[in-house]
Amino acid sequence: MNTLVSLLNAAVLAGTPLLLATCGEILTEKSGSLNLGVEGMMYMGAIAGLAGAWYVEQWFGHGGLLAAVFAFVFAFLCGALGGLIYAILTVSLRANQNVTGLTLAIFGTGFGKFFGEVLGHKAGGYVTVNAETKAMYGRINFGKLSEIPVLGTLFFKYNWLVYFALAVAILLGWFLNRTRKGLSLRAVGESPGTADSAGISVTRYRYLAALGGGGLCGLGGMYMSMVDQKGIWVHDCISGYGWLAIALVIFATWNPLRAIYCSIIFGGLSVMYMYVPISGLPLPIYRMFPYIATIIVLIITSMMQIKEHAQPAGTGLNYFREER
């Protein structure tokens, strides 16, 4: 029972970056852009967040809240920069969405590693933030609440980004399904031609969705560098989470609320080997679990043809007004 509770707690912590990135990708795909560059945007956010916090420490001499705020803003902006590159290429310059996304993944990975090393040179060896900044990503102090057996561990033993990610998912669900703008965004994704003739600017919605989606992916990346790696730059810090997030979008059938429990399941799969050892099973084989699970989920969802009902019809296709 105790193992289960602590596994769930770890699953939520590990699933949070996935949830942020998945929400970002849902937002992007709902506008009709299939951005495969999540991995790249996460790398960009990861290094930008770390760099933001590190520079604040250098300038002001102390970290803490200010460093965390800068990390947050920088990560969002840098992820959004990735989204902007994608939008310029696919929406304005009409490049192939798949190839542009793949290039963004390659570029962003290079971007993260490049500036990670540059920053390392500057810091003299390797980058790390001070204890004050690290504390910003620790558990929130809920006082007696976290001491409640079981429930305390399940609900009150997380850092603030976990609650932030949950709020993002809920807000995104509300935005997409309950607001006028959300309706317009979905219209652009389902049938850009129809939306255009109704006076909705396809270009503006696709740009904004790519920017916002990229920013959320960047925050997911920041989580991995600041929380998972504790503010130290690690070269392979994203290690495929961006691709898992794209798979999660399919698993969650483009629904941000469903993405919450899907990301917890995948977070659990990726940390399970630390909590539930299976005797006789080598660790590397155990670590394959999330990837194997992704493949199985992809196959099952395609068999049940969930995808065809859920994927926005215009996703993956560029829209040219002249070519109708």
Binding site: L89, A95, N96, I106, F107, G110, F111, K113, F114, E117
Partner: peptide, 28 residues
């Protein structure tokens, strides 16, 4: 020159971005 080797990935990415972008000017 102490420039990180990941510069190669970064440059390849940038070159490909530009090559993808300039295709528009061939067709339009």
């Amino acid at each position: 020159m102490k420039i990180p080797a990941s510069a190669a990935d970064l440059l390849t990415g940038i070159i490909l971005f530009f090559m993808l972008g300039c295709e528009l000017f061939l067709e339009y």
